[in-house]
Design a protein around this nucleic acid. Structure first.
Lengths: 118, 118
DNA sequence: TCCAGCCATCGACGTATGTCGATGATAGGC
DNA sequence: GCCTATCATCGACATACGTCGATGGCTGGA
């Protein structure tokens, strides 16, 4: 259950937007990741995970802060997981989620200035 | 027509995701911007604008590269414009679009590590 | 073994989104 | 003034998405 269908690989897929015109394939890959961040609830979930002192948060501690039902939170976590932005780990009855720093970093690189010839 | 309804302001609206849990308001603002980047066609449009030597591209030169109809391209450009990611300027019969570097930079900041206490 | 708690999945609903053809608005050339 | 070119808007359609209540699968404790 940890990562059954990782639709987007963890590592970066594309060059910065300013380096070379994006092809259809890389654009689709990138779009999936940005789509994962295109919802307020998911952004708040990522923020809650990222700001956690332990680096991971139990699902039971995510439902109340975002103010959505448990199935809705579970759905959003699945979207983030399939986008490769978070990982999940089962501990007893609970499931703990954590952000994947390299995934956020890869998006940062895409938004950044072109490294060569800038 | 340049910027009739700027739904998202140009400057950054939020702290990095890792600094403090995101509130509902800032999350909604950010989500709108990421949503603008959540489509392959729009990502390619931004890339075409960003890689242009002149820094701006006529709409007539955007339709063919992305392989969509002219109304569809116009629709996507509107989404990008209302998200504050691009600007448009009329020159004669043509309309030239250009990226807003600070807008991309603000998203980069949000994805980045917390500046204080990192 | 049974029960309780936690989380994922399912089914359904309303809404938002991407896409196109047709049309309209504006600018420039004859 | 008329025609053409360029781009935005409109209307329509299929699909995707966010949301919830209900349900199911697992785990741990009594």
């Amino acid at each position: 259950m940890r990562a059954p269908a990782q639709l987007v690989p963890d590592d970066a897929c594309c060059s910065p937007l300013r380096s070379v015109p994006l092809g259809a394939g890389p654009a689709a890959l990138l779009a999936r990741r940005f789509a994962a961040l295109s919802d307020p609830v998911r952004l708040r979930l990522v923020s809650l995970l990222a700001t956690s002192p332990e680096g991971a948060v139990c699902v039971c501690d995510l439902v109340e802060p975002v103010g959505k039902s448990q199935p809705t939170v579970s759905h959003h976590l699945k979207v983030l997981r399939e986008a490769g932005l978070v990982t999940s780990e089962k501990r007893g009855t609970n499931v703990w989620y954590a952000v994947v720093p390299t995934a956020l970093e890869s998006l940062r690189v895409v938004l950044g200035p072109v490294p060569t010839g800038g």
